[in-house]
């Protein structure tokens, strides 16, 4: 039929919602959330860039930062990224044992990262270089601390998924959740690139 027939009530809206499988847009939605999270971090980076030189006669980056520690920390996060990638590949093969195994390896690297960061923070505060010392240190603790909090919540999420995979297996919903955490975890590594480059390295030159 080539002629268009008008509906009886003359309305042009769709009479039924276009059908999408459940969760089809979850990943895109989660990705857009990550982009908004990226804006939070960019504000914190801008704050650090502006206040980074305001030492208030206190210690500066060269007295405080230990690049060896930051290098180890960076390695931990990078290793955790690739092991999460292996978990995703195991998920594609529908091997839930391997998924759990790689998730736990990822958790170990994540825990090492957090432990090193907490050690660094403890060390700085112990030396009297806490967040209240100068605007530079306030901005530093705010930015690096926010990233650390994200990693902490990522770890909580990761352990939740380990238990859920054990309980439910690799159902469609579980695959979706694992994919979301994959985005979150790799996103945190992207933010860390900015942190180690612009918070630490550039200020140590």
């Amino acid at each position: 039929m080539s002629t268009v027939t008008l509906p009886k009530d003359g309305a042009f809206h769709l009479t039924e919602e276009p059908h999408h499988p459940e969760g089809a847009s979850t990943l895109l939605g989660f990705y857009i959330y990550l982009m908004s999270d990226c804006l939070i971090f960019s504000v914190l980076f801008a704050t650090y860039a502006v206040l980074g030189g305001a030492y208030a006669a206190g210690p500066g980056p060269k007295e405080l930062f230990d690049l060896d520690l930051i290098a180890v920390n960076t390695a931990m996060l990078l290793f955790s990224s690739i092991t999460y990638g292996f978990a995703m590949l195991a998920m594609q093969r529908h091997n839930s044992k391997q998924v759990i195994g790689w998730l736990l390896v990822t958790a170990v690297f994540g825990a090492c990262f957090l432990a090193i960061e907490l050690y660094e923070f403890h060390h700085l505060i112990h030396e009297g270089a806490g967040p209240q010392r100068s605007a530079f240190l306030s901005a530093f603790f705010l930015l690096v601390g926010t990233h650390g909090l994200h990693v902490t919540f990522g770890m909580l999420w990761l352990f939740t998924l380990v238990f859920q995979v054990r309980k439910f297996g690799l159902t469609a919903a579980m695959q979706r959740r694992l994919s979301c955490l994959s985005l979150f975890w790799h996103f945190l590594d992207v933010i860390w690139i900015g942190v180690f480059s612009f918070v630490y390295l550039v200020r140590m030159v």
Binding site: L67, A71, A75, L78, I82, M88, Q92, I193, S197
Partner: peptide
């Protein structure tokens, strides 16, 4: 697409190189 083993390894190797060089430059 969740990537393949090859793409993850490529990304990882490139990341290691791109991390080591700036640390080496500064340290």
């Amino acid at each position: 697409d969740h990537g393949s083993l090859k793409s993850y390894i490529t990304g990882f190797v490139l990341s290691v190189i791109l991390t080591v060089i700036p640390f080496w430059l500064v340290m």
